[in-house]
Design a protein around this nucleic acid. Structure first.
Lengths: 357, 357
DNA sequence: AAGAGAAATAAAAACGTTTTTATTTTGAAT
DNA sequence: ATTCAAAATAAAAACGTTTTTATTTCTCTT
């Protein structure tokens, strides 16, 4: 029965050959007409389009791919830390993928996702994608201060857009968040609230944006005529566990921090967890200001003041830039740095006590 | 300079033609040798392999694709709710993708991700993938009680693995969580803790596993000789906002619930947020038991008792099953239903007061 | 030593496009 | 009416494979 259905399947999917037979034109003309080549007469173009619509013609991606050497794939490197205990991590990536796919919608490009486990893995994946022509363009994040992938892709003239920037040359398409600015703003706000011992929960220093964050952090202190508490910069894998452990470690210092600047929602949750475990109350004993991609901080108890940048918008921009880059557009024109908006949910001055004392 | 590099690029990537010239064999023999066909003599096979290694031959995926009609793509439908305010949602999908890609590693298959916004979108995507041969196999989730995608794919004999099951026939490959069992276990535990008014924070009823959950919920009450409080089953989009709103709505009822069973970590966070906003303490005024994919509940304040199933394992199984399915294996053999493990972090009896009264 | 059959390899065709080159048709100028 | 260029279309080749069919080479058997 099912077999019968299968056997009775409608006529083989139409190709340009089908259209050629239908219209009487040669396959060359069909191809050119469908590609909107100016050499084919408008009248015949119309006829061919009509026939194509009639049989629901869809260009065979494999045929095109073979002939043109293109793959019609937009590759995305998705980092997944080999998380112990499968921890909450990389949660914002669905939003990024969603944004990218939105940008690709209606084009001939599909999105292929390559999972990478660490930086070396990422470099390998990029190499493979270029060498084997697995994709026509590449999007990736987690940019290192000096990222080999960028060097490779620039040298190979392979279209790409990075989420984040190296700290060196910027002659390539990228989308980023103004991390220096955000870290500065968060830190300055806490300093204004009377805090002096402020901890920065930061990613590992080899990541480009980790350095940007530190720059902003230090600048805020410098502008206040203070020395930045460099001993309170924690570096780790941005897992929830890392956030929690940082709090537990720092709060048993003699001059423990009175405030935390958190780099993402995952560590923020860990920081709150650590504070809760130690019986400290946010907004009373300690202040927390966070950076949030996915608007989750509003639901923490208490809600946390954050710098918020909907990450899907970044994803969409990444996709749009990649399309333009694959069209051959000059990468110099394809840059955008977003400034997250501050969403205040707390006074940031330890329940008013700090400014009083 | 960069242009020079590009121009000086090494000899064009080797094809079977290159190998043919190198070894003196015909391309037909090369192809067969590389495909390990038994018709080619072992000695020549070795020679050809050696040549292939020497020049670093990599089969051109596009050529293979065109000839074989295969795409060497494993498609995944990734649901993204058109979240108002880009809310926390679908966070577990990175883990699923990670698991699938693990399974695909070392094979010729790549993972392509198709973002879908709702059920209709998902059906369209499946249709397109089948009709245009965009992939050789498909993985998807969010199974409806009667899911058109399953009907389509079964009818077309298209290899797929679903995460979740229809409530009807099960003659297809699937991976699932034993939702009936989990909901029953959670509910029974709360009933044993003395609770009678228990709320179930559930997805929409058209989803297959929503019904499974209700079944388990109802069974737990029935086994205790009680009527299930059907008025306390909330149905929604599983967003954090939905979890929060449910608490706020239910707690102003005359006979408000004393416990909540939450369906995922996102709603759990919302429930905790709602309870916090109303000044209720978890474990004192109200008990919460949750279901967790990504091990985040340990970091809530207080930590929440959960049924935990690392979702990456599901992803890996999905990938493995799809590979076997694409090899033509009988789908009947490809089923696995996981039972999450209970991780107790709270007594579930309102701080001991319930059993005393 | 000839022939048959099996084993090994080669040749050719095909997958569905695009692109280059060749041919036909059209229209204007003489 | 002829000629010629331009316009329109057709033919053929190519992309890199796999597969079907054909050919060659080898190994026995008689």
């Amino acid at each position: 029965m099912a077999t019968e259905m299968h056997r009775a399947r409608r006529t083989p999917t139409p190709t340009i050959k089908t259209l050629a037979e239908m219209t009487g034109y040669s396959i060359a003309t069909i191809s050119k007409a469908l590609r909107e080549s100016p050499v084919v007469a408008p009248a015949t173009r119309d006829i061919i389009y009509k026939a194509a619509r009639e049989v629901g013609y869809q260009a065979n991606a494999r045929g095109m791919a073979l002939r043109t050497g293109k793959s019609f794939q937009a590759a995305v490197l998705m980092p997944v830390t080999a998380a112990r205990d499968y921890e909450w991590d990389g949660v914002e990536y669905t939003q990024i993928l969603s944004g990218i796919s939105q940008a690709l919608e209606g084009t001939d490009y599909r999105m292929s996702v390559h999972v990478i486990r660490d930086a070396a893995d990422g470099a390998d994946a990029a190499r493979r994608i270029v060498d084997q022509g697995l994709a026509d363009g590449l999007i990736f994040s987690g940019i290192l201060a000096d990222d080999p992938r960028i060097d490779l892709l620039v040298a190979e003239h392979f279209p790409f857009v990075s989420m984040g920037r190296c700290r060196g040359d910027l002659d390539y398409a990228h989308v980023d968040i103004d991390n220096e600015w955000a870290a500065h703003a968060a830190t300055a706000r806490l300093i204004a609230g009377g805090h002096r011992r402020i901890a920065l929960v930061n990613p590992e220093r080899r990541l480009s944006y980790a350095l940007d964050r530190i720059d902003g952090f230090v600048r805020a202190f410098r502008e206040a005529g203070l020395d930045a508490p460099l001993d309170l910069i924690a570096e780790g894998d941005l897992s929830t566990h890392f956030g929690r452990q940082t709090v537990i470690d720092f709060l048993q210092l003699d001059d423990a921090p009175t405030a935390f600047v958190c780099i993402n929602e995952s560590t923020t949750l860990g920081v709150l967890s650590g504070l809760g475990a130690l019986g400290r109350q946010v907004g009373v004993d300690v202040d927390v200001i966070a950076y949030d991609d996915i608007n989750v901080s509003a639901y923490f108890t208490p809600p946390i003041t954050t710098f918020y940048q909907p990450i899907e918008v970044l994803g969409r921009t990444l996709g749009q830039f990649l399309l333009r880059r694959m069209e051959g557009e000059d990468p110099k024109a394809l840059r955008q740095v977003f400034r997250p908006t501050l969403i205040t949910r707390q006074p940031d001055n330890l329940g008013g006590r700090l400014t009083q004392s």
